[in-house]
Design a protein around this nucleic acid. Structure first.
Lengths: 115, 115
DNA sequence: TTAGTATTTTAGTAAATTATATAATACTTA
DNA sequence: TAAGTATTATATAATTTACTAAAATACTAA
C-alpha cells in the first residue's frame, strides 16, 4: 500500500530523513543494546558486578552453558570494551571496564534488579 | 573440554546458579533491551521523542522502509508498552508512553545523542 | 620438553529476527 | 452503501544469533 497522506510536511520528512539516514551514533547505540538483549550476557555482567573477577570456567558453571559459549560471549563483550581480562598463571580473569555506557547500564538497570 | 578448576567455591557457584537460573527480571530486561537493539526502532523512538505523535505513514517516509515493516515494529513496541496510539479520523497516531524504563532510555541514551 | 589445564577458534546447525509482498480489516466520507 | 485511505495480519525469504562439539592454541609446572 502506498503512503498518500503523511501528516507532516515534505520538508519536515526530508529533514528528519537526512538526520537519520546515516547516523553512526544510532548504529553504535544499537550494537550496544544488542549486547544486552542476550540474557546470558546480562547474567555475566551481573556476575562480574558482584564478583569483580571471574574466569570462563566459573561463569560456565554458574550459567550452565558450555565454556565455549561463555568464551564467545566474553569475546563479543571484549570487542565492545565491556570487559577486559588479565592472566594469572593458567587462569584468565575477566572483569568489567569503566566504559561510560557500562556505568549507565549498571547504575540504571542492573543495580535495580531485585534478585 | 571439562571445567576442572573453578576459582570460586562449589557453594558460591550453587548460590549464584540458584539466583540466576530462574530470574524473570533478567529475562524482562533482556526483552526490553532487545527492543532497542534494532536501529529502526531506535529511530522511531527518537522521532517520537521529537515529534510527540506520528502515524505509520510518516515514519515509513522518514525511515525509508515499508509501512508494513513500520507497523510491525510499532506493534512490538506497543506490546511492551513503549508506545500507545490513538485514532483521529482515519489516522492512527503513535506516541511514547511514560513507562519508567522508557524514561531511562530517553534520558540516559537518546537525549545524549549528538544528531 | 612433555603432560596437563585453560581458553579460544572453527564449523555446523537450529532458532530468532527483519524485511517484503500481498491479503485482510477498519474507518471515513462522498 | 461503495470507494478510498490507513493500517494490520499472514506468509515467506534472507540474515543474524547462539549454541554445541571438536580442533587448535597458550601457558604452567613437573
Amino acid at each position: 500500500m502506498e503512503c498518500i497522506g503523511p501528516t507532516i510536511s515534505k520538508e519536515e520528512i526530508k529533514k528528519l530523513n537526512k538526520i537519520l539516514t546515516f547516523s553512526p551514533e544510532i548504529e553504535e547505540l544499537s550494537v550496544f543494546f544488542g549486547l544486552w538483549k542476550n540474557p546470558a550476557r546480562l547474567k555475566i555482567f551481573y556476575l562480574l558486578s558482584i564478583e569483580k573477577k571471574l574466569c570462563v570456567c566459573d561463569i560456565s558453571e554458574v550459567l550452565g552453558i558450555t565454556i565455549s559459549a561463555v568464551s564467545q560471549h566474553l569475546s563479543k563483550m571484549k570487542a565492545y570494551n565491556i570487559v577486559k581480562y588479565k592472566r594469572e598463571n593458567q587462569t584468565i580473569y575477566y572483569y568489567l571496564t569503566d566504559h561510560p555506557l557500562n556505568l549507565k547500564i549498571k547504575e540504571h538497570f542492573i543495580d535495580s534488579l531485585n534478585i
